[in-house]
Design a protein around this nucleic acid. Structure first.
Length: 564
RNA sequence: GUGCCUGUAGCUCAGCUGGAUAGAGCAACGGACUUCUAAUCCGUUGGCCGGGGGUUCGAAUCCCUUCAGGCACGCCA
């Protein structure tokens, strides 16, 4: 539960704050108000561990050149009892802080103490947050967009968990409404075509063309024959939906499990109809004057919330829209189940609905800022250097199951998390299966396997990995060692940033950095055969590197092999 | 036409709330295994941060404008 970097930043902030107060007290600076003191990490190593721009920000208030203010502040700094070794004024007025090397050794002790919990922090303070993701139509198999949304949503959920939130993963099952009707019509058409020939009935224009629909009906016919030919179309469709829908949902569930995603809740849209919550929310909106009748339909007055168009809730045929269910669903999330925060992952093709959904949340009396909608850009698959189309309509879409079969869960999850959600993602199928240095997944996993192999060998010779407290960590002085420790120390802060920005992709980059620094260390320094105290100190370092790599890979549900 | 996303090295992308000389991987080229896993490491080459204005001590980052690509604009979900 320790954020090493944040604790250090806090030390720096306090030191600066006290220095400012002291300087004002002595009259060396005029009275000045400061807000949050920003402490940043300089890009250049020569600029120290941390720097602050406070002197530049104060320039106007104190009517002094930044460089002058900086030296006054430095002169008033009390650094006893801190990790700060010295502070220097540099450039246009930055104050750079250089730390005692002991902070690195203490960081190793933290890692050694927290082990599999290292990285966990508590900025979430146990707040209830729901991450709703994938929520694909159960009318067919999962596609690449779902695969990206799945990897992203699951990792966002994991990151929030690590950051101290009480997280619920949820899949919203669209088992009601128009697309289910279409599903039924499509099944029915295939059923009749199978029994009476392709010309017996035309396949509906906007039906689901996928092979899976035909497969369902082949299985149905094999099991139950032609008994539905005599039934009314309505009964026939209901029966076929009841047959195929649970199978689809189960297949989705299994596919996602294989992908490493486990949901806490599968929430049925249909249940909102049955519980009356949908009717209730419509009633609520009507009573609050937020519904208007136009052209025989009922509309949500989105224009009252600054949206350019109203939106239909109840169609002129009396059926409610998806939007209406969604309002009831969000009322359920916030008001019935009491989530402090809800995060929805939507494909970028739904971006037009974001403002409207937030308006609806506001309309039902919940602070719309509690709803975060993460949009992710769509995926383009490449194979043999060409775009591999993924159209649900043609029925030849590459599904999640295909992907898992071809490239496997580790590569798929890793690659989907290498890019920020907002950037378009080109997924190179050929690269994903390559077991070479072009493929970053193996690079990271190899580092882990390499460490395990080293430790196995050394332990087999009777040397155990000592605990950080029983070795002389000051033996670690090589630049490769120090840089590796520094990187390992950053992990909790990486969690913090990923959680705050809802961007787990930075963790894959982070773990690549860790692996890279480890490999450099490995090539520069030996462990086995070194003088005993040095070897033991290095064992602690190597073991800590393993802890961090393992923790990150576990977090994003990618396996950390002990041998490769 | 309107709105949203994206333009950074040959390619794929980082760049947290504005900071100091813009980074990484891959590709290309040159090196390193009789010693803990060479699926590795070390080094070199590579940039009008799409263009143009503005804001300020300071802009890849914020604002305006323009160009290019993607997506969305339904009583579908």
């Amino acid at each position: 539960m320790t954020n090493i970097i944040e604790d250090l930043r806090e030390q720096v902030r306090n030191t600066v704050k006290k220095a400012l107060e002291a300087a004002i007290e002595k009259g060396e600076l005029p009275q000045a108000a400061i807000g949050e003191i920003t402490v940043e990490t300089p890009k250049e190593k020569e600029h120290g561990e941390f720097s602050t721009n406070i002197a530049m920000q104060l320039a106007r208030q104190v009517k002094k050149a930044p460089v002058q203010t900086a030296s006054v502040l430095i002169g008033n700094m009390d650094i006893t009892g801190t990790y700060i070794e010295k502070a220097e004024c540099a450039g246009p007025g930055f104050i750079n802080f250089y730390l005692k090397q002991s902070w690195l050794y203490d960081a190793l002790k933290v890692i050694d103490r927290e082990r599999e919990d290292y990285g966990r922090i508590n900025i979430g303070q146990g707040k209830k947050v729901m991450v709703e993701f994938v929520s694909a139509n159960p009318t067919g198999p999962l596609h690449m967009g779902n695969a990206r949304g799945g990897a992203l949503g699951d990792c966002i959920a994991s990151v929030l968990q690590a950051a101290g939130y009480d997280v619920t993963r949820e899949f919203y099952v669209n088992d009601a409404g128009n697309q289910i009707e279409k599903f039924g019509i499509s099944l029915e058409a295939r059923y009749i075509q199978l029994l009476k020939g392709m010309d017996a009935v035309a396949f509906p224009e906007d039906g689901y063309q996928g092979e899976d629909i035909i497969d369902h009906m082949k299985n149905y016919v094999a099991e139950f024959g032609d008994k539905l030919l005599e039934a009314t179309p309505e009964d026939r469709r209901r029966e076929l939906i009841n047959y195929a829908l649970p199978k689809n949902i189960e297949r989705i569930r299994k596919g996602l499990e294989t992908y490493g995603i486990h949901y806490d809740v599968w929430f049925s849209e249909k249940s909102l109809y049955e519980s009356g919550e949908l009717a209730d929310v419509l009633k609520y909106l009507r009573e609050h004057g937020l519904v208007v009748e136009k052209e025989g339909a009922e509309w949500f007055k989105a224009t009252e919330f600054g949206i350019d168009k109203d939106e239909v809730l109840v169609r002129n045929n009396g059926l409610t829209t998806y939007f209406a269910s969604d309002i009831a669903y969000h009322k359920n999330k916030f008001q019935k189940r009491g989530f402090d925060r809800v995060i929805n992952l939507w494909g970028a093709d739904h971006h037009g609905h974001v403002a409207r959904m937030k308006a609806a949340v506001q309309a039902i009396g919940t602070d719309p800022d509690k709803l975060d909608i993460v949009l992710f850009q769509l995926v383009r698959l490449y194979k043999n250097g060409e775009v591999a189309r993924m159209s649900k309509r043609t029925g030849r879409a590459i599904s999640l199951d295909d992907l898992l079969e071809d490239v496997g869960r580790d590569a798929a999850r890793f690659i989907f998390n290498t890019k920020a959600s907002g950037s378009h993602l080109d997924f190179d199928l050929d690269l994903a299966v390559k077991q070479s240095n072009e493929n970053p997944v193996y690079y990271v996993q190899y580092a882990h396997a390499r460490i395990c192999s080293m430790l196995r060998l050394i332990e087999s010779e009777g040397t155990k990995v000592p605990s950080a407290d029983e070795v002389d960590l000051m033996k670690l002085t090589a630049p490769e060692e120090l840089e590796l420790i520094r990187k390992l120390a950053e992990y909790p802060d990486e969690i913090r940033i990923s959680a705050q920005t809802l961007e787990p992709s930075r963790l894959t980059r982070y773990v690549e950095d860790v692996a890279s620094l480890f490999h450099s260390f490995y090539n520069a320094c030996r462990v086995k055969g070194e003088e005993e105290s040095l070897m033991k100190a290095r064992l602690v370092l190597v073991s800590s590197a393993r802890t961090v790599i393992k923790n990150v890979l576990d977090l994003i549900s990618i396996s950390a092999p002990e041998r490769m």
